[in-house]
């Protein structure tokens, strides 16, 4: 119903698709306004490339043990061994190579789990918000019950029950975090549904399915994109927590959380085994978060100061 007449009739309350297209054209200028989107997005992109090309970038085999070379300090220390830039852990494995390979697990979990949670949460939020009635009551009750579980405890429990593996970690995050999307999408849809342009579409004889798909969904997409970016940061943390507790991928495969847990054991002898993966985890979480918040500001001018 991209009727020009309609747009003229309700200029203030007609966020139709033409608006989205106009916004896209303004994208370069808007990114310049929010440079952190570029910086954070660049960091995430770099991390994705590192994860994909880990085999070429990593100076050593992340699993290769050499007990003669255990707990070597980082390169700037006089005791350091050339070729081990960030030192080695208690089994003589190269810390930098393990961090590089660890990004594979982190990035895989971030993207797959966030998209999974986003899909389920968005669909349930759309149905619950748009159709109301029984579906809304059922979904809202389910969200209430879900919110009463401590998320960290539930994720540990789920992975313990499913057996520690990459897919269990992803399933656990999807099962727990779909509510984040569902709640926001539902309230967004309820808000959209009450705007004049939806009433106008009804008056013009549009079916409910058409209104949902052509009018409401496009207006919910930006919010979902923001949530996706934030959820990726959360997923990276949850994976780190699980591998810290020893419940992520099969042992031996490097994960940041697993490295941090190993480093915790020898923190007084070799702080670098603990500190470097922690720094990388910190930067990654910060990047996803800044990307999400930067996108939010771009999409919603009202949240800008």
């Amino acid at each position: 119903m991209a009727d020009p007449a309609m747009e003229g009739a309700h200029p203030a309350t007609t966020p139709v698709r033409g608006e989205t297209r106009r916004r896209l054209a303004r994208l370069p200028a808007m990114v310049a306004e929010e440079p952190r989107v570029l910086v954070a997005g660049g960091f995430v992109l770099l991390l994705v490339l590192v994860a994909i090309f880990a085999g070429w970038i990593a100076p050593h085999d992340p699993q290769a043990q050499d007990l003669m070379l255990n707990t070597l300090p980082p390169a700037w220390n006089p005791r350091a061994e050339p070729g081990y830039l960030l030192g080695t852990d208690s089994l003589g494995r190269d810390v930098l190579s393990r961090m590089i390979y660890g990004s594979r697990v982190a990035i895989t979990v971030a993207f797959v789990a966030a998209i999974g949670a986003g899909l389920i949460g968005t669909v349930l939020g759309l149905v619950s918000g748009f159709f109301g009635g029984f579906a809304d009551a059922a979904v809202s009750r389910l969200v209430d019950i879900w919110m009463a579980f401590p998320p960290v405890l539930l994720s540990i429990l789920l992975v313990a029950v499913l057996g520690a593996s990459l897919s269990s970690v992803i399933i656990a995050i999807v099962v727990i975090d779909w509510t984040r999307f569902c709640r926001v999408v539902r309230s967004e849809v309820v808000q959209q549904k009450n705007l004049d342009y939806v009433d106008a579409a009804v008056t013009l004889g549009a079916t409910r399915g058409r209104i949902l798909w052509r009018e409401v969904v496009p207006n919910v997409v930006p919010v979902v994109l923001v949530l996706l970016s934030l959820e990726m940061g959360i997923a990276v943390i949850v994976e780190a927590v699980l591998s810290f507790v020893g419940l992520s991928v099969a042992s031996g495969l490097p994960t940041w959380g697993g490295m941090i847990a190993d480093g915790r054991q020898i923190i007084y002898q070799a702080w670098w085994v603990f500190a470097f993966p922690l720094c990388l985890l910190f930067l990654t979480v910060l990047a996803f978060n800044q990307l999400g918040n930067g996108l939010r500001r771009l999409i919603d001018p009202l949240s800008r100061r």
Binding site: I237, I260, R264, I267, F274, L281, F282, V285, Q290, N293
Partner: peptide
């Protein structure tokens, strides 16, 4: 942006 898990480890 930074969750309690990361703060706890940073404080350690």
């Amino acid at each position: 942006a930074v969750p309690d898990f990361v703060w706890a480890l940073a404080f350690v």
